[in-house]
Amino acid sequence: MAKETFSVKKIFKDGLLDQNPIFVQLLGMCSTLAVSTTVINGIGMGLSVTFVLVLSNLFISLLRNYIPSKIRIASYIVIIAGFVTVVDMILQAYVPSLAESLGLFIPLIVVNCIILARAESFASKHEPLPSVLDGLAMGAGFTAALVVISALRELVGSGTLFGIKVTPAGFSPAVLVISPVGGFLILGALIALVQWLQSRRKKED
């Protein structure tokens, strides 16, 4: 097979900006809304998803010529579920407090659309190395978006960052922002902002 050419820069630019999983592709909304109440949760979720993405992309890419196309989705899900179980066990063993606050959303990484989408649209068509890079880039984009959302929500909703109080004494936090309601409203506003920026950039071109 001819050696594939790929651009590392493009893969990372896609993952972080042009094809950002949350803000542009609008994937993985459940875990985004649920865990973005504190920055630590956001980072924990982002890194867990990145770990699963990189390894599942690698294995799916290695096996892409052996998996029959009729049962490929089921095979991908089994591979992904295997790695999710690994992450679940690691978190429970080493950072039980994080595992507890992320709760069911760790096993639910299995059905996070980002991972299956990358498996189907990238890893199943590319060689292992670019697939791993794609996993890293998409994971980084997911983590970065989660950090932005969760920092905003934690700052306004509880007046803290990483659990440390950063706002002046007179600031009374808007608790609504860390409630489910605030999650919907803030994510909606941020996606609108991204769409506005995109339409402005298109006009300039």
Binding site: L26, P180, V181, G182, G183, F184, L185, L187, G188, A189, I191, A192, L193, Q195, W196, S199
Partner: peptide, 19 residues
């Protein structure tokens, strides 16, 4: 408003229902 069309306005409507 154009930037709010599609998913953003759906999220905001969802937020109000959640309220």
């Amino acid at each position: 408003p154009k930037p709010f069309q599609g998913v953003p306005i759906a999220l905001i409507a969802g937020g109000l229902l959640a309220l």
